[in-house]
Design a protein around this nucleic acid. Structure first.
Lengths: 383, 383
DNA sequence: TTCGTTACCGAAAACGTTGCCGATAGTTTA
DNA sequence: TAAACTATCGGCAACGTTTTCGGTAACGAA
């Protein structure tokens, strides 16, 4: 008969199984015991050194180590030096998880964008990274892939990761913003950029969507275009609508009539613009100028026009929105309204971090990053 | 005279200041007291609901809530349903920090790349994101900006963040790998891609650097080129050297002599290739073919050649490494050896995650992602 | 009855840090 | 020469979660 490991008596009786192991009950000391597993293979997980390790080496308390490492004033200079020395010897790295859990902030900002691979967003990211990392913040990036549901999941994942703030440019599909409102109301700092949302009172960074479109179209008109088509974006998207407004305003200013048949909407996907192009070219009176709201659309239309042996800009002048390396390299070089993605990202990150550190409900602001009309030969019809 | 808050006696004597507040010593109960700050403004930080909140609502213990939420078997079905109901009502989100701290893993992988904005790396990132997020992993991205010291900081930051594994493509400057060895030896799963390092026994994902270069150069030779120049990369970088070897092997195979004056090294920075081009054109016998190891170099040389009215490919044929949208759009379209960045990223992420979940020191492997020769008119001299 | 069993659940100890509070030796002041 | 003070340090709770261990009620079997 086994003996009780506590009182030593042999008054053990079986008492069922628990988690696969036989359990006993000792009637003397009235307690339950299980036979402990003797050979617990010490999982040997590689141990990161902690402040407790340092404390043990020096015979001080963890608090003291923490104070030394955080430049507290309540610590002896000699002790601090010793602690720092040992910390270096043991290659101590603070566990940011524990730190964040304790302090209640992670020094991490979340970013939700539709697609990393688009040069515009890659540029924005670079700007965000630059500002964030020089301010001591880490960045966690999620792609929505232009899907509303993915965007919601992204936001949830980031919030669960306890981000200190959120930068977001909405997906094309996104038309409801409850997933943001909730966290915004709970006090999560949020800054919108590019594809903003006006239903929530966040700070925003936008480009000159209206102005840019206006300038591009006006430029076409000045070059003598009379029938200007627009390859517009998704109608749900705010920036699409704004650029569309800019287009109409320019037409109106110069007394050109708006023609519904010269409007084609796309979803920013490859090839979608060609449908519109096709229909325009079939018109009894085809356009003599095309304004593409999305950069990639302009490029693919140019390729198509060249294949059809249509002279650019003689027969049709072409302008695009948003620059790319491609615009200047393609033949003929494309006239664009250049945005500054890096600056957009940097500005948004700066605003967000300000909001995070100031805590105050500082009034939300809206900043517009200036763009720049870059005229190239795809639109130069004079001379 | 103040009364001691513990024994009620008035045997208080002053005992110095501590953190700005007067301190007293009670001779009766022999203890120190300070006057407590009466009005501690309750900071009202917006409270995320925790399992404790849920536990309180239902009058159960936090353990039970945790069990319910983690699909433990040791829980009553009804209790579980109730807990899940309340959790939804309170919009409970698990605090991933606490979870990670407890479990010892973060479900986060770190990525270090030289530059987000290069289409190649953007593509890799997209592949990583895709695989990681569908496996339930988050991704933390750092840019080294081609700087060794930044890369070291990146790695440290990621390790401090307790990442479960690391994907890295080294910076140009990186020639020592101590910052990785340390963590690798401690058991951090690491997978190299693209710019790998052979000093550490990590798993690696590479492209066909040798083969690609070989095929490109062989293609030039088949097109009749006799003097083929190479715009090589940084000599320290392994992939540069490998591509250079491929170049030399192709020359050798076809009995062409290697000419040192036809070699120019760049650091992958804008404009650097033009110096080499200049010197080549000044040669008594200029090259009739150019192989650019870096995509951007090929593009900028093409622009320069066109400006100098040199016919491509008639006078000089041009081929590049690594595709881009630009290659097909530029005039003339550029022959390249196309890499598949998305696949590289996806593969690397898959390997890393396998390594993480298997824990075992599974033998490290090295995978080569097949490339593809894409012949375009920049190199077609026959027809 | 009394033992053996199952099905649950709670308490408490982790995880690594920080910050509040209290304690003490030594020093200065009255 | 006690009182007041300074400079340091240790203890402990807290952050939110998981997990181990032990306890109890209810039920079946001997």
């Amino acid at each position: 008969m086994e003996k009780c490991s506590k009182c030593g008596e042999t008054t053990l009786i079986r008492s069922g199984f628990i988690r696969g192991k036989q359990r006993f009950f000792c009637k003397s000391c009235e307690s339950y015991i299980t036979i402990p597993n003797p050979n617990q293979p010490p999982s040997k997980k590689p141990h990161q050194t902690t402040i407790i390790d340092i404390a043990k080496v020096l015979g001080v308390s963890p608090s003291t180590v923490s104070r030394a490492l955080n430049d507290s004033s309540e610590i002896n200079e000699f002790t601090r030096q010793e602690i720092i020395r040992v910390a270096q010897e043991l290659d101590y790295r603070p566990n940011l998880l524990a730190q964040s859990l304790n302090r209640g902030q992670t020094h991490t900002i979340g970013v939700v964008i539709p697609d990393i691979q688009r040069p515009f967003f890659a540029g924005v990211l670079a700007g965000i990274q630059e500002v964030a990392s020089s301010a001591g913040y880490r960045v966690m990036i999620c792609q929505s892939n232009e899907s509303h549901s993915t965007e919601i999941l992204n936001v949830q994942a980031l919030v669960s990761s306890q981000i200190d703030g959120l930068l977001i440019s909405h997906s094309i599909e996104t038309n409801s913003f409850e997933h943001l409102k909730l966290h915004f109301n709970r006090g999560l700092p949020i800054v919108h950029f590019d594809r903003i949302c006006n239903e929530i009172d966040t700070s925003k960074v936008i480009q000159e969507d209206f102005n840019g479109a206006f300038q591009l179209v006006e430029h076409l008109i000045e070059q003598g275009c009379k029938r200007i088509a627009i390859c517009a974006g998704p109608p749900d998207l705010l920036i699409s609508r704004t650029r569309f407004e800019g287009y109409k305003a320019a037409l109106e200013k110069h007394g050109l009539s708006f023609d519904e048949s010269l409007v084609h909407h796309t979803g920013f996907k490859a090839g979608e613009s060609l449908v519109g192009l096709e229909s325009w070219l079939a018109l009894p009176e085809p356009p003599d100028g095309i304004f593409a709201v999305h950069h990639a659309n302009a490029v693919e239309m140019m390729v198509e026009l060249k294949q059809r042996k249509i002279k650019i800009p003689k027969q049709i002048a072409l302008v695009g929105f948003g620059d790319d390396q491609i615009a200047s390299l393609i033949e003929p070089p494309l006239t664009v309204f250049h945005l500054f993605p890096f600056k957009i990202g940097a500005t948004a990150a700066k605003m967000l971090i300000n909001q995070i550190v100031e805590k105050e409900q500082s009034p939300t602001s809206q900043v517009t990053i200036q763009g720049e009309l870059r005229v190239r030969s795809s639109s130069l019809r004079k001379n």
